[in-house]
Amino acid sequence: MRITQGQFSFLPDLTDEEITMQVQYALDQGWIVAIEHTTDPHPRNAYWDMWGQPMFDLADAAGVMMELGDCRQANPNSYIKILAFDSNKGFESIRMSFLVNRPAEEPGFELVRAEAAGRQLNYTIRSYATAQPAETRYR
């Protein structure tokens, strides 16, 4: 199951050239670009691991692409996203966020039913990937 999230989620995965152009756009706006990665595809997973620190004072996307290359090499079977933070007053929040890497195989989600009082059923989803410990997912 192909997970989508953030900007461009309706498009096919971006190529490296397209990622470079998006990152360059963010840098030209004066936003700060950061890279984060995770192996937990749950949509409510807000705690992704930071890849290094957010990159301040960059002029060119090549620096971000270099870090992205390193991150991909270290976490080939992970979700990796690129974020752009706008520090201008009034925004002070993430302006861009899009996936730039995904595991080769994404096993998808299981629908979990929990029986509650009476005949009530509570539903939730659980990723098949997270059944394994973090290091052994997507092997």
């Binding site: 990159m55 960059l58 002029a59 060119d60 090549a62 971000v64 270099m66 870090e67």
Partner: peptide
């Protein structure tokens, strides 16, 4: 690496 990233493109 930080310095190199800042200099990229120039």
């Amino acid at each position: 690496k930080d310095v190199l990233k800042k200099a990229m493109g120039g």
